[in-house]
Write a protein that binds this DNA or RNA. Sequence first.
DNA 1: GAAAAGACCGAAATCCTTTTCTGTTTCGTG
DNA 2: CACGAAACAGAAAAGGATTTCGGTCTTTTC
Lengths: 343, 343
Amino acid sequence: MAGKDHVGGGKAVTLTDVARIAGVSVATASKALNGRSQVAAHTRARVVQAAEQLSFVPNTLAQGLLVGRTGTVGLLTSDLQGRFVIPILMGAEDAFGAGRVNVFLCDARGDTIREQHQLKALLSRRVDGLIVVGSRTDSRPSVGRDLPVPVVYVYAPSEDPEDLSLVPDNVAAGRLAVEHLISCGRRRIAHVTGDPSYAAAQDRVKGALEALGAAGLELVGEVMYSEWSERWGRDASAVLLERYPDIDAVLCGSDQIARGALDTARDQGRKVPNDIAVIGFDNWDEMVTNSRPELTSIDPNLQLLGRSAAQRVFAALDGEELGTGVHSQAPRLVIRGSTVARQ
Amino acid sequence: MAGKDHVGGGKAVTLTDVARIAGVSVATASKALNGRSQVAAHTRARVVQAAEQLSFVPNTLAQGLLVGRTGTVGLLTSDLQGRFVIPILMGAEDAFGAGRVNVFLCDARGDTIREQHQLKALLSRRVDGLIVVGSRTDSRPSVGRDLPVPVVYVYAPSEDPEDLSLVPDNVAAGRLAVEHLISCGRRRIAHVTGDPSYAAAQDRVKGALEALGAAGLELVGEVMYSEWSERWGRDASAVLLERYPDIDAVLCGSDQIARGALDTARDQGRKVPNDIAVIGFDNWDEMVTNSRPELTSIDPNLQLLGRSAAQRVFAALDGEELGTGVHSQAPRLVIRGSTVARQ
DNA sequence: GAAAAGACCGAAATCCTTTTCTGTTTCGTG
DNA sequence: CACGAAACAGAAAAGGATTTCGGTCTTTTC
């Protein structure tokens, strides 16, 4: 009986029910509930009361069918861990009031076939727009040019320059990180980063070198590329410290690599930040707040990215030009104990 | 123009269009595409070809309106980090084919008002069912008894015993962890865990004590409660090692605490796993694979939980009893280098 | 060759809401 | 008192897909 309650209890209250209870036609009931002007005050009150009594919720499907808008967005991701997609989703939800826009989250698991299925399903659900999130910042294949809804690529840009892509500005991020290190008085800076095939790695290197050049400095040694893991952070830092014992800062390509660097510094008795400063990228909460000391990092502002994406989608529906090309968004420096000693 | 393409390009192909191209009525077109029997083979072929030519996608809104099923599920969460909800979401997506069921992911951010809004929005979208995910395993308020759709609570059970809740079995998890340590020859086992107000903490303690008792052993010292952080893992382990230098295993309430314990062991020159074994809970990928050595952990099988939840929802729609009460799911032991030396 | 049976296609109703248009009532004013 | 205007309520269509039911045409069988 309890089980049945859940399934049959509310039993889909329709506007017709409300109208019957209030003793008016459905047309009037609709107008009353939507604040249209052609309804007398007392009639409106009767309808509103009836609606509340039945706890009526308008059927968005029917509305969408009629109006041609559903108030939904599809979020198509390949980011298995959910590390990047979650803030983007929250930003998209926030773009308008809570519950005004709802998000279909689909994980394609990096599979193109699966992505096609998901895409088709989303279109059949008549989403108002699509946000495509890649798992790395390299450009990815477009999901197609002539889709019936606006598409915004976030994090990973589309290969097609006619598409609109919103990405974190990794060059600026690299620059920002180095500028911070320099402002902390560091001069002998080395760089450990991840997979060189990632655009994110290359862009951050570029920004870092720019900032170093502007200050009349050079990187200590070569950029050390390998993988985005703590293990690599540990190993690379060990090599660095042996080869260049006088370095006073390690610029790390990700928070994980930075954690590895912190571990090695600790193992070798180097004090952070006094002897060596360490800085990471991503500002991944779990990583930066649990290390010893806490980790200074560059935050790519993903939530803002998600919010802009959703706003662009709905602006496009209102007739505004969607726009094309890759737009990058400025990062934010978050200072913690790994670069500045706590006072 | 490019922007316009995206918005107006596909322009909503309807079944009417397909029927017109194929030279049949909409009724026949529908039957042809849905494999109904009342259509001649060559007619069906014409319709299918027309549909492909126009790349027709049926409007799920219209179908849902008519049939009363939308093939969507609402996932209402308070799990800000997305650590638990993502595997659950993936499980729910997998319960049926890719794209057969789509999931609305809503983050209530721990706010009750916001949750109410989201709930209302989901109901207005006529989701077929609801999956409610809590941020901790303690019981949480029911979202209501007489909702028009089946509701399944996952991870955090509902306070209302008439609701159906699917949760990880933390007692079994605690038992499993200790049994593993014992099978590795450990006898002097201590336990560091997180916030004692969390049901997860208490349940794991309970299971651990059961397993110890069954083996005729006792816990070394008191259970050390505080917070779910690496910092606490480090500090607590340091205290433990000083007070009970002969312990040979630390059972940690989470992977984060376990990482802290590993750090302390390393700082003090204790070899893991030879001198001391360390085990965690959650099997959180980023944590367990990046530590030194890699961390043995208990996996709560969240993806399976999400899958069962979705299956239950749709079974309930097919008239099956939804069921009530709290059902717990067996965990899985994942052995890594922190308890068993690599050969 | 005619009647019965079967195969196939189409018109229309249905789901729920919004909007337009038409019809009725009431009020104010000349 | 009558007429015009304003205010309000309701009927009906639209949106897209599915299904039932009725109608047409072909085939089979005696």
